[in-house]
Every structure is written in C-alpha cells, then in structure tokens.
Design a protein around this nucleic acid. Sequence first.
DNA 1: ATGCCCCCGTCCCGGGGA
Length: 257
Amino acid sequence: MRIASWNVNSIKARLGHVVEYCKAGHTDVLLLQELKMMDEAFPHDAFQEIGWHVANHGQKTYNGVAILSRHPITNCEMRLAGDDSDEQARFIQADIEGVHVASLYLPNGNPCPGPKFDYKLAWMDRLDALADSLLASEKPVVLGGDYNVIPQAIDCYDEAEWLGDALYHEESRSRFFALLHKGYTDAFRAIHPEGAHYSFWDYQRGAWQKNNGIRIDHLLLSPEAANRLTNAGIDKGPRGLERASDHTPVWCDLALP
DNA sequence: ATGCCCCCGTCCCGGGGA
C-alpha cells in the first residue's frame, strides 16, 4: 500500500492536479494539507466519480486537512488532543486497511520568537503526546504531513538562509527528533540517507528552477509500520505542472502484513 | 530589505505562507 502526503496550497486551485494524481494510480492513500476551504464546499463529487473515499476537516481561508483513499476510511477523528481552544483545522486521523494514518499541517511558527512560534512548539508537544499513545497501541501508524520542520542541514539548499527561521530552529528540530528517538522512522530518510532531496520550493526567486528547496513534508512510521517499509520517495512531477502547489508529494510503500 | 510569488476574501489591497 502506497501512502503519499501533499500540501496542495488550496484544494480549489489544485483540484485538477489532485484528481489526476489519484486517477493516474500514483498512490493508494493521499494525505492533503492546506485545503483553504470550508467542509461544505469540498468537491466530494470529483472523488466519488473516480471511486475514492474522502475524510476532510477544513475551515475558511486557512489550513484544512484531508485523507483520500481508494480503500474505505474508518474511525475518523478530527482535532489534535491537548488544547480545546484550538480552532485551527490542522489534524485528521483514521484507519485504512489496518493502518492508522494521520494528515497533519504543523504551524509554520514565524516570526520567531513570538506567539506563532509558541503555538508551533505547543502543537508539537501535543503531537508528541499523541505519538506516545499511538506507539502504545502497537498498530502500524503513519503520521504524514507538512511538518514545517527542516530536520537537518542536508535537507535544505542553503543552511545560511534558514538560520534563525522557525522551520530550522533548534526548538522545532529537537521536537521532531524526539519523535524519531522514541521509535518513529522518517520514511524518506530511511531509504535515502543522502541530502539535497526537497519537497518544497518557494514560488519566489526562481527557487524551483534553481532547485533551491527544503524537505519539510514527512511520513513518520511507527515500528509496526517501519517493519513493512519497502520504499519511499518524493514525486517531483506535480511541482513542475502549470499552476503548481509550492509543495510536491512525498510517499512510502508498506508491504502487506 | 520582511520584498520577490501565490492564494484567499467580497476583493485591486492586506494577511498568510515558508
């Protein structure tokens, strides 16, 4: 089973790309972020027509996450526990074919320091607590999404550009690595130890043409999922399309149990 | 230099993204 994650930067602007991606057979499950659309407006018909299942959690203008799947989606839950006052649609989780999958859109956190950075770190602490409880479940778990974290210097084109930025801040990276240290596997890094592979290229300054990118979209696997990991990659194709998202899909393959 | 590009809303600017 292939599971991919893609920050589409508006599902309205990217609907054609996303439907084509599903139809083309590139993946079995597609985790989406930055829908920028209220649930009532979600284009369910477009996915029903191609036989895909959808679970979505959106809000007006900002954020918004979804799980698309060619297999049925069960036990769906929105919201990340730990802060009942958090109204931002950044998290959805469900079970698909015995695998627990989550689509998450971690806060950007800039400017840092500041309240947005504090929110990012608090959000990561809430994710850490969820990661603990999911580990205890001993189920295969895939926590996928836009983490807005550059894990290492090899995950960006030019480290100097990111020093002091919330995406590369020690407080952000240490929380990301805490997830790895407790037993989660960065699927892409496990298959590709070398650097200079990116999942985001800024619209500005010809970043895509110059390959001035960063790797901030990740699929973290629990041990039960990592045991089934056979391959992982970044699909750069969609970034080169007309009216592309600034992110491109990252994916991993899990063998049948 | 907080801009350069892109998306949203009720909309020809400002906020947010990363």
